[in-house]
């Protein structure tokens, strides 16, 4: 909470402020702010991938709930699992889909493993911290939501997101916007209800609840079935923790998860630069005026002897 208040304080304090002053203030608070670590009572979803049968009901529910464009192939068409995009990669979120399910054939496992993919709703979202018009908000309920009315379309959030989640409606000429899962914030999460995909799942793959309870539940599940699950809760700590977390019975890197992201939120890599900004702003003027005085000292000296 502390960090969020500070952010608001800066935002208000800056209305109409000077660029130079603005950047200095903001970066000072960033550098001193430490990590945010998330809202204490935020909600989350725990995905037990071992239970997923790849029926795509969640994709259909999401499409309906969010009023998205009709998909290229109907949701009961399972041939999409064989589709590959550029570079032989499986399907990803697009301007028509907030979430997709992908199939992974894993050696030594009787059935393929299905992985649901959507925004993970980071505790300290990279998209939010990289946005220069504050289009993103991490709500206390845990969702990372986006305001299309202020978005300029620079797409830095797409660069910053370590999970490659945000898509962009490139097809629109007059109102292209970022497209990503908002955890059904407007229609459900705000009122304490589970996202549409969670509710629609026929197999109970996803559990909706307070994030901190879900962390405990995840560890208990692993503890109770140590021979079944991989001993890792993906999303508990990755890039500062995410609201969506995953359990798997095969190593995560084999089913498309990036296991090299580290536990620091993305903004921590940027802080070295941000902390330096106010120093340059304050030290450079005196330093370079000093250089000028030194460089032109001969003129000053001759003037002195003349008078």
């Amino acid at each position: 909470m502390k960090s969020m208040n500070r952010r608001n304080f800066i935002k208000n304090g800056l209305a109409g402020g000077l660029a130079v002053a603005a950047t200095a203030k903001a970066t000072e608070s960033k550098a001193a702010g430490g990590t945010f670590g998330g809202y204490p009572d935020s909600m989350g979803v725990l995905v037990d991938m071992t239970k997923c049968i790849g029926c795509r009901t969640c994709e259909a529910a999401c499409n309906k709930e969010q009023g998205l464009a009709a998909p290229d192939k109907p949701f009961d068409d399972m041939s999409v699992f064989e589709e590959h995009r550029h570079g032989g990669l499986p399907r990803r979120t697009t301007e028509k889909a907030y979430t997709v399910v992908n199939k992974y054939e894993v050696e030594g496992r009787d059935h393929p493993l299905f992985r649901k993919f959507q925004c993970n709703h980071c505790q300290e979202p990279a998209c939010l911290t990289s946005c220069f018009v504050n289009a993103y908000t991490k709500t206390p309920e845990g969702a990372v939501i986006y305001d299309p009315k202020v978005c300029v379309g620079c797409r830095t959030c797409m660069i910053a997101c370590p999970f490659y989640v945000p898509a962009y409606s490139f097809s629109s000429a007059i109102n292209p916007v970022v497209v990503k899962c908002i955890m059904c914030y407007d229609t459900r999460l705000k009122f304490g209800r589970a996202p549409a995909c969670v509710e629609a799942c026929p197999n109970g793959v996803m559990t909706f609840g307070k994030r901190k309870d879900l962390v405990d539940k995840a560890h208990k599940t692993i503890q109770d079935n140590p021979e079944k699950y991989v001993s890792h809760v993906y999303g508990e700590k990755e890039v500062g923790g995410t609201s969506w977390m995953y359990l798997s019975d095969v190593p995560f890197e084999e089913v498309g998860f990036d296991t090299h992201l580290g536990n620091d939120p993305i903004i921590s890599y940027v802080k070295d630069f941000l902390g330096m900004v106010p120093m340059v702003l304050t030290i450079w003027p005196a330093l370079f005026t000093g250089f000028h005085l030194l460089a032109t000292r001969k003129d000053a000296n001759t003037d002195d002897t003349k008078s």
């Binding site: 950047t23 203030k25 946005c131 220069f132 018009v133 830095t156 916007v177 940027v270």
Partner: peptide
């Protein structure tokens, strides 16, 4: 830019001063 007519947004409409691109823009 997706919406080039919003170029001045980081200056007047909605400020995100903690972002690196904000500094570049200004």
């Amino acid at each position: 830019l997706g919406q080039p007519w919003r170029l001045v947004y980081p200056m007047v409409v909605s400020l995100g001063p903690a972002a690196v691109l904000f500094l570049v823009a200004w």
